[in-house]
């Protein structure tokens, strides 16, 4: 666990960089969190995926894996990897301030 200053707010991140307390997250943090993932600028398409990620977590209690993310967001897998080259589910979850999605497929 490490405390980090994001958009002037102190947040708790776990060893893999995911939010320990998703409630500490706010939308204003997106650009800064995305930059840390090497994503700059954040496009409308990125935001769509990030919002779906956050919404899925808030309604279902966990974020979707890549296959499920493609289905719920209607963004094809190929494009998800173009938007988030280092792993769409992982990167979008970090930027959306939620825990790491669980799932093997």
């Amino acid at each position: 666990m490490a405390a980090k200053l994001v958009s002037g707010v102190e947040v708790e991140l776990n060893s893999e960089g995911f939010f320990a307390n998703p409630k500490e997250w706010s939308e204003e943090m997106i650009p800064e969190l995305a930059k840390a993932e090497g994503i700059d600028p954040v496009t409308e398409r990125h935001l769509e995926v990030i919002r779906v990620m956050r919404h899925e977590y808030e309604t279902k209690g966990s974020g979707p894996s890549v296959r499920a993310l493609a289905k719920v967001s209607n963004v094809p897998i190929k494009e998800l990897y173009q938007l988030f080259p280092k792993g769409p589910a992982k990167q979008a979850a970090r930027i959306a301030g939620i825990p790491k999605p669980i799932g093997c497929i």
Partner: peptide, 8 residues
């Protein structure tokens, strides 16, 4: 293979 890609 798929899992590796999803880990980047």
């Amino acid at each position: 293979a798929n899992g590796a890609r999803s880990e980047g």
